[in-house]
């Protein structure tokens, strides 16, 4: 069993998600009695392989989920994949995967471009590091769900405005449900991103105090991009709240959610290709026994 699990690679679950996505896309072209089962089967196989991969890494790579940028992206992709599978089973006539699986695959692609080397850790920073990573993960997932709901709202509203019956295999949830989901996602994204940013500042302060990691300077790109993201998400949540009692409120919320996804994507790309001291080991050696990190490639 252990040997089997150790052979699972990113390609295994990425390919499963890709097949599930192809099945989902084929809804628009033709009907099939078994497509739903095939699609759910591949998506479920992908989630199982993805889960085993993460568990295996946590158990054997001396790292826990969120301990490196690579693991963070894979965990974010896993949360979205689980959400996609659950929503697909709960709403078989709605092409949820068509919207969610590209984001899952995008995050897996981002993982491939990021460093798998765990951030240096110590007992003092591990907790704050986990809190920081978890809030950022929650914020990203909330932005993704909100944007998907917003996109669906715009598609559904467009269909209703054109006075067309729903297209075969492309039935969207109601505007009421989508608007509610978009609004909740916007506020969740705002406060979790703010909490993630704040916990990052605390983590930086702990590092500075104890000399565990390289202190991230205030003008470091990671602080700038995360600060910009948090600022935008808070503004978007406030704008969404302000528009809630206007007739065009749901449309405003849908557009804001898509902009939030764009800002998040930009932030991720900036993180992938920009230089930063985020999560880097100290330039000077720390006191012996206080740092527990894997030597080797320096994280980006």
């Amino acid at each position: 069993m252990a040997e089997f699990v150790s052979r699972i690679s990113v390609v295994c679950f990425a390919a499963s998600y890709l097949v599930a996505l192809a099945c989902e896309a084929s809804r628009l072209l033709f009907r099939s009695g078994i497509r739903g089962a095939v699609m759910v089967g591949f998506a479920a196989a992908g989630v199982v392989a993805h889960t085993l991969f993460i568990v295996w890494r946590a158990a054997n790579e001396q790292s826990v989920p969120l301990s490196s940028a690579y693991d963070w992206y894979l965990l974010a992709a896993w949360v979205l994949a689980c959400g996609s599978l659950w929503l697909t089973i709960a709403n078989p006539r709605t092409p949820i995967g068509l919207f969610m699986l590209p984001l899952v695959l995008g995050l897996i692609g981002a993982a491939q471009l990021s460093s798998p080397v765990p951030f240096p850790q110590s007992p003092a920073t591990q907790v704050w590091g986990a809190i920081h990573g978890s809030f950022n993960l929650a914020a990203s997932v909330a932005v993704a769900f909100g944007a998907i709901a917003g996109m669906m709202w715009l598609i559904q509203a467009g269909r209703l405005a054109r006075k067309q019956a729903p297209a075969q295999g492309f039935r969207m949830p109601s505007l009421e449900k989508l608007a509610r989901f978009t609004g909740r996602s916007a506020s969740t994204a705002a406060w979790t991103a703010a909490a993630g940013f704040a916990s990052g500042l605390v983590l930086n302060a702990v590092n500075r105090q104890q000399g565990l990691l390289e202190t991230v300077p205030w003008n470091d790109p990671v602080i700038l991009r995360m600060g910009a993201l948090v600022a935008w998400l808070v503004i978007a949540a406030l704008l969404e709240r302000a528009a809630a009692h206007r007739a065009d409120g749901p449309r405003t919320a849908a557009i804001l959610s898509l902009i939030s996804l764009g800002v998040l994507t930009g932030s991720i790309l900036w993180g992938l290709f920009g230089a930063s001291r985020h999560g880097a080991p100290p330039r000077l050696a720390a006191p012996a026994g206080r740092i527990d990190f894997v030597e080797g490639e320096e994280p980006r």
Partner: peptide, 21 residues
């Protein structure tokens, strides 16, 4: 699958597209 009467289309394809409940 698709409805053919005006009242059923009005409710199933349009009202349900706007309202969840």
């Amino acid at each position: 699958r698709e409805r053919l009467s005006i009242p059923s289309v009005a409710v199933a394809d349009f009202a349900r597209g706007v309202f969840e409940r």
